[in-house]
Nucleic acid binder design. Structure first.
Lengths: 133, 133
DNA sequence: CTCTATGCAAAAACTTTGCAGGGAT
DNA sequence: ATCCCTGCAAAGTTTTTGCATAGAG
């Protein structure tokens, strides 16, 4: 199935309209893997010259609420957004700030005090990426 | 050794002055474990009525640069700051936003593509804390 | 005494909101 | 045709900066 059809379906499931701007934003996140607000805005302006930054913000929030994308908060850096996919971990390059997907650990052995209910865990590895070495 | 002496030493090592405001900020982070900017500001105002929010920001950045404190970016919530201590993981309550320290995993088996140099890993567990159940 | 840190005010950066018109279903 | 979405402008929020003075070493 084509990506654009998938996106349209995901949006429809949440009663959201498949506007060209939304499709473009999803396409950019798909292509880049991880993008911050400004990257999305700069990129989408190439096709939608008069798009408003406010629209980008509104759609990011709408897509977050719908669970179609998620925010990755990176220490000392701007947040990146990505399309929700099967669970994985993130590698953040401390030099260039790029985020990479890496496999998630098979098993996490952390003992929690009683009374604490884990729902999910995320692992972030900080280091230097191949390009920056 | 007393905490305040420890703080003074850490500051001196980085050629930073031990001002009452800095000592108070470190004391607040020590006491709370994890505090966000506003919590620190509200708390410190009790003792330093005329302290400026700008001073809090400046000191947070100074302490971050010195490696004395670190920032914990929490999904959907404001960043929290804590005094750097031995490595551990974080549990974030998705209801109240509170951050708790938990033991870190003994071993993290993630295979990175070659060329990627990990420096450190952080684990964040999201769930519901004891109080909020 | 020297030079950094503070407090204040202003500016910059970032994000949200209200509203009128346009476009997707 | 309806109602959501967009673009614009303005407002709100958060963070940084410049400068004069205070105060730590």
């Amino acid at each position: 199935m084509e990506k654009s059809v998938q996106y349209a379906d995901m949006l429809k499931q949440k009663d959201l309209k498949s506007t060209p701007q939304r499709m473009a934003m999803l396409g950019i996140m798909e292509a880049k893997g991880h993008a911050d607000i400004d990257e999305i805005y700069q990129e989408i302006k190439k096709d939608f010259v008069s798009i408003s930054l406010a629209t980008v913000y509104k759609n990011i929030n709408t897509l977050l609420d719908a669970g179609i994308i998620e925010e990755i908060k990176v220490p000392q850096k701007k947040s990146k957004f990505e399309i929700v996919k099967h669970k994985h971990s993130h590698f953040v390059c401390e030099k260039c700030g790029e985020v990479y997907d890496v496999q998630k650990p098979k098993k996490l052995d952390i003992e929690l005090p009683e009374g604490f209910e884990p729902r999910e865990a995320s692992v972030m590895i900080v280091g230097v990426c191949k390009k920056c070495r």
